[in-house]
Simulated assay, not measured.
Amino acid sequence: MSILTSEYKDWLNELKLRIRSEQAKLSIVVNSALIGFYWELGKMISEKEFVWGSKLIQQIEKDLRADFPELKGFSISNLKYCRRFYTFYKSSIGQQAVDQLQDNKYSITENHPTLQIPWGHNILIFSKAEDQNEAFFYIKETIENGWSRDVLALQIKSKLYSRQGKAVTNFKNTLPNPLSDLAQQTLKDPYVFDFLTFSKPFQEKDIERQLITHITKFLLELGKGFAFVGQQYHLEVGETDYYLDLLFYHTKLKCYVVIELKNTKFIPEYAGKLNFYLSAVDTLVKQDDDKPTIGILLCRDKNNFETEFALRDINKPMGVSEFELTEILPDNLKSNLPSIEEIEEELKKLE
């Protein structure tokens, strides 16, 4: 069936009138107006595709480019994104969005976080997220942290949504509400240090050294609020010297955070030692207006049941998470592997 019917032409004229009425706003790219318009455009396309079929978008693109050559946003790919934007969110914000967008009144409200981030960020989120819960998580984090599109893409790629707040902790038993919930959401499991590369064998000190070398990326993975205090931070307890792997201060939790690195599987003894360090920081470093010091134990592997059991009677707040990093083959093994050229030569022989 041909799309070019009188009904389609009437519908197209109505669409053009809407575009012209908002052209001043769209030309200066007021974000809330632009996102609101894309929502409405996606709604119109989604509804009319049932009438005119899958070729509707191609026809709209052709007609709108002819009338509005100076306006961006009417490419086939972007029209498809508009449709996907509408269909992805319509079950949760559909009626609210319709109410908000009546009479072309676009505004940012707490109920419509999609209007508070740029279109490019929105595309990344609704095209990558598995469901609306995940999408709203990334929207919230983007707004709170001011993420650029590249940082947002990195966080989605590292599956932050499935890692945030998943560390094994004893916070509910050692911290008051709502601080315990806030602290829980601050930790991740696992932490992904894919900006570090190592050849075996390597030790905890090698990891520490690279983390500090890449401190900006390390702080991004830790999350908002972490301020670096020191590496191998010195404490003297009973005339004995002790050195904390990494010491941070969390500006939102208002407390010191001790991070201990173990390039092995978690064992209960690690929790006891970290508990000692937290007591030392609370006594020697913490100020009266600081909240209790929190410990984070980062291991290469752990058994969650064993970890929960080990933390059960610890009286200091701490969490245990795994961490992942990139390992490369040592040079002596690399030399025994065939080169790309040698592999290509063997393939040619097989052909």
Rank of each mutant, 00 (worst) to 15 (best):
Y249I: 07
E204G: 02
K252L: 15
L284K: 09
T251M: 14
L235E: 11
G295D: 02
V257L: 07
F202H: 02
A271F: 01
I267N: 11
L247H: 02
A271D: 02
Y233G: 10
D245Q: 07
E239N: 10
P292R: 08
I296D: 10
L244S: 01
E260P: 00
L211A: 02
D241T: 15
I294Y: 01
I267L: 12
F248T: 00
F218T: 09
S199V: 08
H234I: 11
E221T: 03
D289G: 12
E208H: 08
I207P: 01
F226S: 00
K224R: 11
K252P: 14
K286Q: 09
Q210R: 12
H250Q: 08
K200G: 06
L222C: 11
L222R: 02
K224C: 12
H214I: 03
E236R: 11
C255W: 04
G225Q: 04
H214R: 09
E260A: 00
K291M: 11
E260S: 02
D245W: 04
E269D: 12
E221H: 05
G230Y: 07
E204I: 01
N275F: 13
L253T: 04
I294K: 02
D245G: 00
Y270M: 10
T213E: 14
D245L: 01
L220M: 12
I294R: 02
I294L: 05
K205V: 09
K286A: 08
V257C: 05
E260G: 01
L261Q: 05
E239A: 15
I259C: 01
K252M: 13
K252E: 13
P201N: 06
L220N: 15
F202T: 03
F248W: 02
L247T: 00
K252H: 11
K291F: 13
D290F: 03
I259E: 01
K224Q: 15
E204R: 03
P201T: 03
L297A: 01
L244T: 04
K273Y: 13
C255G: 05
Y242L: 08
V258A: 06
H250W: 14
F276D: 08
T293K: 05
T283V: 10
K252W: 11
V285G: 05
D290I: 04
R209P: 14
G238N: 15
T240V: 13
A271T: 04
K262H: 04
S199F: 09
K217R: 15
N263I: 01
A227F: 15
K224G: 08
Q287M: 09
L211M: 07
L222H: 06
D206L: 05
F202I: 08
T213H: 12
F226H: 00
T251L: 13
Y277I: 10
D206S: 15
K265D: 09
N263Y: 00
F266P: 03
F226Q: 01
L297S: 00
I212P: 07
F266H: 07
D241S: 13
E236M: 07
G238Y: 15
P201F: 03
N263L: 00
Y270V: 08
H214K: 14
P292A: 11
D290T: 06
F226Y: 06
E260C: 04
T293I: 04
T213I: 14
K254F: 14
K205I: 08
Y277T: 05
V237E: 04
H234T: 10
Q287D: 14
N263E: 05
A271G: 05
